[in-house]
Design a protein around this nucleic acid. Structure first.
Lengths: 341, 341
DNA sequence: CTGAAAGCGCTTACAG
DNA sequence: CTGAAAGCGCTTACAG
C-alpha cells in the first residue's frame, strides 16, 4: 500500500493504553462511554487519545461490537428530494459516533438487494431504506437481521421496523381541493407504473387521496390515473397523448416534482399554457419549484424532518427499543403560479 | 440485537471449510482468486459456499486484508451531474467484489474531512473524491494513506493520486465561440465564490478558457466575472443586480447547469427574454437542460465516462500501480434554445 | 473501579 | 497444491 501505513507508526488501543498507563479494556470503555470508569481514568485516557491522535479501527470494532456505521439506501440520485432527507439524517448524527454511508440502488431491485447485503456484510449497525422497491416480506426479513427504519412506505401494522412518512392521503386531498378552488374540475393523477405495488407506497396513498377527494368534490366520474415509467421518453409519450386527446384534463397532479417539471415541458410543447389551459401540481416542494420558469405548486413533506426522525428512531432501535414506531408528518401545500389561473 | 443473529446459525469460513472438507486457508484463497488452488478444490469450495449461502464478514477481512469497499465523497446531493458520475462508478464495479459507498460533504470542508477520516477508519480500500473542497496538501496527505482518485481537480503534476476530468478550458472556449457565433458580444461568466481556489478547480479552468476565448474574439475589455455563493438568495441578489445595471451583459455563461436554471429564472423576473435579450449557457448537460421551459445550452462532459474511468483507475491503484494517471475527456457543446436568438 | 485473557472471522507467511 | 497456526485490533465476560 501507500506510504504512511507502516506498522510501527500505527496507533492502536494498546498504544493508547500504554501511554495512559492503563489497560486496553479501560480505554475501550472510555471510548464507548461504557459504565464503570472513574473520572481520573477517563481523563488520562482522553489525554492520551488526543495526544496520539488515536482513531478506533472500525473493522476491529465490527468483529465484536458495533461499527458505528448506518447504511442509507437511496433509490436514485435524480430526485432532489433525497437531498433534503440526507440533510436531516446528517443533522441527527452530528455529535454522535455514527456515520451515514449511502448506497444508490439505481431504481433496480436487484441492485438494492445487493446493496443491502453489502451493508449487512459490512456489519453496519442499522439501515435506513428510502422508498425501497422490495416486497414487504423482504423488508421484514432485512429488519430481522439488522435494525431498520423505512422512509416512504406506509406500514403502520408492521412490528419488525420503524417507518417515517408524511400523510400522503391528506397531501393528495389538499392538492385536489386546491385545484378545485382554482376552478379546475377535470383533474388527472400522473402516477408511476410500478411493477408491484402492495398498497403501502406513497404513490398508492396519493392515488387514494386523489380518488377520495375527487369524489368529495363531486368529480368521481372524472377520475383518471395516468401511468408512466420513470423516464423522459415514456412520460413524453404518455402525457403528450393525454394532453392532445379530446376531453383532456384541465389539471394534472403529478406524484413528484421531478415528473411535474416534465409535464410543464410537454404542455409547452403541445401548445397549452400553464396555468391557463392546464394546472400542474407536484409533490415534495423541491428547490426547482421556486424557479420562475417552473413556478410549480407542490406539497412540502419536510424531507429534512423525515430524515432526522428516521435517524433518531434507528439509533433508538440499535440501542435496544423493540416496539415499532410509525412516525407521520402532516404535509403542507405551497401554492405557486402553475395552479393559479 | 434482532432475531436471526443467533450464534449457531452464523455461517463462517470455518463452516464452509468443514462442509467442503478443506482448510479455511483454502476457502480464503478461492474467495479471493488467489493463486495456487486446484480446479477440484475450487469446485468443492464453491459448491459449499453456494449451498450454505456463505458471505464473507467484511470486518474480519478488513483486519488483515481488504474490505472491498470504495468510498465516494460527494460535495452535495443538489447537483444532478453527480448522478451521472455514480452511474459510471457503479458500471465499473459490476462483476467485481467492490462496493461503492457514498458520503455527502454538504459543501462543508469540516464535514468532508470527517467523512474521509470515517472512510479510512472503516478500512476502505480506496477513495474517489468528487470536487473536494480541500487544499492540495490535504489531498496529497489523504492519498498517502489510501489509494485515491480525484474527479474535478486538475492536478497533472501530482504523483500521489490519479485525476479524472474533462477539459474545462476547452469547454469554456466552446461556449464563448458558440455565443459569439450567435451574435452575443458582451458575455459574462458567472462563477462560484469559493474561499480558496488553488487554480486546479474546474471553475478556475473555465474562467481561464472564458478569458482566453474572449480575448481571441476581440472582446477582452468585455470580460466580466460575476461571483456568487451557491445559494439561491445570493445568486438572485448578485445576478439580479448585474442584469438591471447599465451595460448589462447580453449573455451569461454559468459554471454549472444548476446555477444557469436560476439565471433563467432571474432573467424572467427582471423582464428579459431568453435568448432574445439574454443568452444563457450552462455546464454539465444534466437532464434538466432538455425541458422546454429551460431549453438550456450546455457542455456535456460525459459524467458517466468520468465515473467509470475513476473507478477503474482506483482499482488499478489498489492492485499496485504506483505511477499517476491523469485522464482528460474532451467536452462537447449541446446547443439549445437558450442561446439561439 | 480496574485489568488479564479469550475470542470475533478472516488472511498471511510458512512448512509440508 | 494444501493446511496448521499466528495474529490483525478491538470488546466482553469475568475475576480481583
Amino acid at each position: 500500500m501507500a506510504a504512511g501505513r507502516g506498522k510501527g507508526s500505527r496507533v492502536t488501543i494498546r498504544t493508547v493504553a500504554e501511554d495512559a498507563g492503563v489497560s486496553t479494556a479501560a480505554v475501550s470503555k472510555v471510548l464507548r462511554d461504557a459504565y464503570g470508569v472513574s473520572a481520573a481514568l477517563r481523563a488520562k485516557v482522553e489525554t492520551s487519545v488526543a495526544r496520539l491522535g488515536y482513531r478506533p479501527n472500525a473493522s476491529a470494532r465490527g468483529m465484536r461490537g458495533q461499527t458505528y456505521t448506518l447504511g442509507v439506501l437511496l433509490p436514485d440520485l435524480h430526485n432532489p428530494f433525497f437531498s433534503d432527507i440526507m440533510t436531516g439524517v446528517n443533522e441527527a448524527l452530528v455529535r454522535t459516533q455514527y456515520q451515514a454511508l449511502l448506497g444508490v440502488g439505481q431504481s433496480a431491485e436487484a441492485l438494492e438487494h445487493a446493496l443491502v447485503d453489502a451493508m449487512i456484510d459490512r456489519q453496519m449497525d442499522g439501515l435506513i431504506l428510502i422508498s425501497p422497491r422490495m416486497p414487504m416480506t423482504e423488508l421484514v426479513a432485512i429488519a430481522e437481521r439488522v435494525p431498520t427504519t423505512v422512509i416512504g412506505i406506509h406500514a403502520p401494522d408492521i412490528a419488525a421496523f420503524d417507518t417515517v412518512n408524511n400523510d400522503d392521503i391528506e397531501g393528495a386531498k389538499m392538492v385536489v381541493r386546491h385545484l378545485e378552488e382554482g376552478g379546475y374540475r377535470n383533474v388527472a393523477f400522473l402516477s408511476l407504473d410500478l411493477p408491484r405495488d402492495q398498497g403501502g407506497s406513497p404513490i398508492s396513498h396519493r392515488e387514494r387521496g386523489y380518488r377520495d377527494a375527487m369524489a368529495e368534490i363531486g368529480m368521481a366520474r372524472r377520475i383518471k390515473v395516468i401511468l408512466a415509467q420513470q423516464n423522459p421518453r415514456d412520460i413524453q409519450h404518455t402525457v403528450g397523448h393525454v394532453l392532445t386527446s379530446r376531453g383532456r384534463p384541465d389539471a394534472i397532479f403529478c406524484w413528484t416534482d421531478f415528473i411535474a417539471l416534465e409535464v410543464l415541458s410537454i404542455a409547452r410543447e403541445v401548445g397549452l399554457s400553464v396555468p391557463g389551459d392546464l394546472g400542474v401540481v407536484g409533490y415534495d416542494n423541491t428547490s426547482y419549484c421556486d424557479l420562475a420558469q417552473n413556478s410549480l405548486t407542490s406539497i412540502d413533506q419536510s424531507g429534512q424532518v423525515l430524515g432526522l426522525q428516521a435517524a433518531r428512531l434507528l439509533i433508538e432501535r440499535i440501542k435496544g427499543r423493540a416496539a415499532a414506531e410509525h412516525f407521520v408528518v402532516t404535509p403542507r401545500l405551497v401554492a405557486r403560479g402553475s395552479s393559479s389561473p
